[in-house]
C-alpha cells in the first residue's frame, strides 16, 4: 500500500490519520506538503481534518486551490483512491471531486461528540470491510458539516448508491442526514466523522478500522 496524507496550513488531524493508517496498513504513510506540485506513485491520498487557511472565504475553499490539489484531481480522474475527512471532505467538494457543499451546522454550534451512523453502502473500496455491520459509532468535530445538495443532485446520489454514511440522529441539518458521499466512480470518499479517532482499542472505539481495512483490501486483495 502506497499512501500519503496531505498537510495544509491549519490541518490538525494529519498525524492522527497517518498513525491510524500505518497501524492498519502495516507500512509507513508519507506526509505531503500542500505546496508540492508532484505526487509520488501512490494508491491512496488522504486529506485530513483541521481548519486549512482558517476556514477563510469558505471552509476548504483556499486549500482546494493549492498547488497539490491540481495533481490530486488528476490522480482521482485516473482512478486513484482519495479520502477526505472533515475539512478534507470540505476541500473535496470545493475542488469539484465530490458533489454538494458543506455549510454552517443548522444549530450554529460547533459539534464535538460521538454519533451513531448507518453504513449506507458497502459497495465501495472504502466501506466493503464493514460487511454485515450497518450501525457504527464515530466521533464528529465540526462547525461546517451541514451537507447541502439540490433535489436533482440528491436523486442522483440515491440512484447511484453514492451515499456512504448517514447520521442516525442528524446533528447538523445535513440534507437526507448525509454524513459521507462517494463520487460516481466510487474512488473518492468524503465524510465528516473521524474514523482515525476510532482506530485504536486503547481509545475505546475501533469502528473506524474497517474503513482503512477496506482500502488495504481494495489495493492488495481480500485477506491481506
Amino acid at each position: 500500500m502506497r499512501a500519503a496524507v496531505v498537510t495544509f496550513p491549519g490541518s490538525n488531524c494529519d498525524r492522527d490519520l497517518r498513525v491510524a493508517m500505518e497501524s492498519v496498513f502495516g507500512v509507513p504513510v508519507r506526509a505531503l506538503w500542500h505546496g508540492e506540485r508532484d505526487l509520488p506513485k501512490l494508491d491512496l491520498v488522504a486529506l485530513p481534518g483541521g481548519f486549512s487557511y482558517g476556514d477563510y472565504l469558505r471552509a476548504g475553499a483556499i486549500a482546494a486551490r493549492s498547488p497539490i490539489m491540481a495533481e490530486i484531481v488528476r490522480f482521482a480522474r485516473r482512478g486513484g483512491l482519495v479520502l477526505g475527512i472533515c475539512n478534507g471532505f470540505q476541500i473535496l467538494t470545493e475542488a469539484g471531486l465530490l458533489p454538494g457543499a458543506l455549510v454552517r451546522n443548522r444549530g450554529l454550534r460547533f459539534l464535538c461528540r460521538t454519533v451513531d451512523l448507518e453504513v449506507t453502502t458497502t459497495a465501495s473500496p472504502f466501506t466493503a470491510a464493514y460487511g454485515e455491520v450497518r450501525h457504527i459509532r464515530l466521533p464528529i468535530a465540526h462547525h461546517d458539516g451541514n451537507y447541502v445538495i439540490d433535489q436533482d443532485g440528491l436523486a442522483r446520489l440515491e440512484g447511484e448508491g453514492q451515499i456512504a454514511f448517514r447520521y442516525r440522529d442528524n446533528p447538523n441539518g445535513s440534507t437526507a442526514a448525509i454524513a459521507g458521499v462517494l463520487n460516481r466512480e466510487r474512488n473518492v470518499l468524503g465524510l465528516m466523522p473521524h474514523p482515525e479517532r476510532a482506530a485504536d482499542p486503547r481509545l475505546g472505539n475501533t469502528d473506524g478500522v474497517p474503513l482503512f481495512r477496506s482500502l488495504l483490501e481494495a489495493v492488495h486483495g481480500a485477506g491481506s
Partner: peptide, 9 residues
C-alpha cells in the same frame, strides 16, 4: 467562478 463563489450554494 474559480474561487470567490461556490456555484453549488
Amino acid at each position: 467562478e474559480r474561487l470567490l463563489a461556490n456555484p453549488v450554494i
